[in-house]
Nucleic acid binder design. Sequence first.
DNA 1: ATGGTTGCTGCGCAA
Length: 275
Amino acid sequence: MSTMRLATWNVNSIRARVDRVTDWLERADVDVLAMQETKCSDDQFPTMPFAALGYDVVHCGFNQWNGVAIASRVGIDDVEVGFAGQPSWSDKPEAEAVAEARALGATCNGVRVWSLYIPNGRTVDSPHYLYKLKWLAALRETAATWLADDPSAQIALVGDWNIAPTDEDVWSVEAYQGSTHVTVPERSAFDAIVETGFSDLVRPYTPGPAVFTYWDYTQLRFPKNRGMRIDFILGSPSLAQRVERAEIARDERKTGKDRVGSPSDHAPVVVTLTG
DNA sequence: ATGGTTGCTGCGCAA
């Protein structure tokens, strides 16, 4: 075991963002990066810019909007698309259901990393909302099994959870009244996974109110710091023991001439694990 | 003021 920097970032299109992402990987000295909303098929993923920096990449694109990936410069082993019990959205053929998977697992230097894109839910009266809850319940069941099978396993559940676990995690409770991301069932589903033994590795190092990972592109939400905390790195007990520090790379959300191209609407989240 | 922005096998729709 050696020191490892593990990050997650909803990149909102890897093809539109590859220069920003690789630029940040270098500056931030990140070893493993889980990405969400890559918005491309597997053959469209720009692997070369990552390879040039020494990163291997695995990707699973499952529709025109979404897709998850893991880039690692410390190796990638035992890649798995989706997990047992993961519900598929519809009665599509088996192959398409697998391609719809919103989870990609890989072992990087002894740490099992899951890049997760939890279903958005859209609106509380949408079938997508029920699908989201069903998906979270299946994740909890499976994750509990992983820990039961090996209580000392180093497992990271990282990504865009599309849930703000507490009122402190949104800029305005009123603004999200009646919306997804803040409902009791969603928060209970998140809490249930935490209770299974996966703790938020970042929050202890980023305390206080108005600490966010996502800001809507519109209405000057970022300059006004009107965001949500919906991107998380959850870790098994053995992984939690290794955390040395953590941060939200808020500056990567900035628009500016010192940055290449436009920003994602999410900021990266990082943990440093001791050796 | 029901607005604003970003991305896409884009021309509306999901986020």
